[in-house]
Simulated scan of single mutants.
Amino acid sequence: MSLPVGENIYAVPRQTSLIDYDTYKLIMTATGIPYKSIETCSMDLRNIDGMMKADERVILIEKARHYFSTHLRQVLSLGVKIKSVDHTNHSVTVNGEKFDYMIDATWGHFSPIQIETFFEPTLLLYFEAEEGLPAVTFVDGPLYSIYPTEEKTIYTLSSVPHTPLGRYRSIDEARSVRDNADKSLIEMKLDLMTQQALENVPNFRDQYKFLGPQLSIKTKPVGNSDDRSCYVGKSGRIFTVMSGKIDTIFFATERILSMIEADHGDVPRDVPSSLLTTIRAKATEIGISVR
């Protein structure tokens, strides 16, 4: 469901980064993430204190959608509007149909999350350029990144100060801002983000042709850190999941199974309940290894 990024660069700008390159190298070394310091890359970068190459992958979204739609077609219903949820100590009834449990993975759009969060409408920009240009993330601070997508000639431009469109406690407010983003706002953000990119990529306008925006909403924990943790909450028979990165699905799976087992008492591993048997069978069917 992913491909390696051919040339993935982390660059520390000389004047706009909050830390110098040597400090950033110490941080990377401390995390244990493999990297290699480099002097040049295939993109003309200016005003750079230093840069490194690290291995990363790009997610193949359409392939993943097709894969899971195919493998889960017997149990998957798409485009269903949830009109009612009623729950007791023994079951959850969704749209009049009874279930043992419900897992809400809407990031707080439906059920409240059990940590303090805010909603951030965002604007990401798509550009077209020649195939094989590097992914470049400028660190650290209020900077930006240019990143490839699964389409070989399409790239994204995102900016720490310019991609967010505000912070809201109410999902309705965040949706209103997202849905009312107009041409003038997009043009303003395009100009601001292009000007930021030109600080280090002088050929940006020549290399990249603007295609259009992506408007979305992020749910983030309240706080100053960029928290990517995975939170799993439980209220009665309803689970709420707020994942940080895509790989935290495995952590969420383990947490939910553990909570279900706690509900059923000490369930023997060799004689699992029928519910756990069903859950594990479905997980195994799509290639997820569970206990």
Rank of each mutant, 00 (worst) to 15 (best):
P4M: 00
G6N: 11
G6R: 10
E7V: 06
I9Y: 07
V12A: 05
T16H: 02
D22S: 11
T23E: 10
K25S: 06
M28Q: 12
M28V: 04
A30V: 00
T31L: 08
S37A: 14
E39Q: 11
S42L: 03
S42C: 05
N47F: 09
I48G: 10
G50F: 06
G50T: 07
M51H: 04
K53S: 15
D55K: 13
D55M: 04
E56D: 14
E56F: 08
R57D: 10
R57P: 00
V58Q: 03
K63D: 15
K63T: 12
R65G: 02
R65I: 02
Y67A: 11
T70Q: 14
R73F: 01
V75I: 15
V75T: 13
L76V: 04
K81V: 15
S84T: 09
V85N: 07
V85Q: 06
H87E: 12
N89F: 01
S91I: 04
G96Q: 05
G96I: 06
G96T: 08
K98A: 15
M102A: 13
A105K: 03
T106A: 04
T106K: 05
W107I: 00
G108T: 05
H109A: 15
F110I: 02
F110S: 13
S111I: 09
P112Q: 09
Q114N: 07
Q114F: 00
E116A: 13
F118G: 01
F118Y: 14
E120H: 02
E120K: 12
P121R: 08
L124H: 15
L124Q: 14
L124Y: 13
L125D: 02
Y126F: 15
F127I: 05
A129M: 00
E131T: 12
T137F: 03
T137I: 05
T137E: 07
V139M: 12
G141Q: 05
S145I: 01
I146T: 05
Y147T: 15
P148K: 08
E151K: 14
E151T: 14
K152W: 00
Y155I: 05
T156A: 06
L157C: 06
V160P: 02
Y168G: 12
R169K: 15
R169H: 14
I171A: 08
D172A: 11
R178H: 03
D182F: 01
K183H: 10
L185H: 08
L185G: 03
D191I: 00
M193V: 07
Q196E: 13
Q196V: 09
A197N: 04
L198Q: 12
V201E: 01
P202C: 02
D206E: 15
Q207I: 01
Q214A: 15
S216K: 10
I217R: 09
G223Q: 09
S225Y: 07
D226M: 12
Y231W: 09
K234H: 09
S235Q: 12
G236C: 07
G236V: 04
R237G: 05
I238F: 09
S243V: 06
S243F: 00
G244C: 10
D247E: 11
T248A: 11
F250H: 14
F250Q: 13
F251I: 12
A252K: 04
S258K: 12
M259D: 14
I260V: 13
A262V: 11
A262H: 08
G265Q: 06
D266C: 02
P272G: 07
S273C: 03
T278V: 10
R280N: 15
K282G: 10
K282I: 13
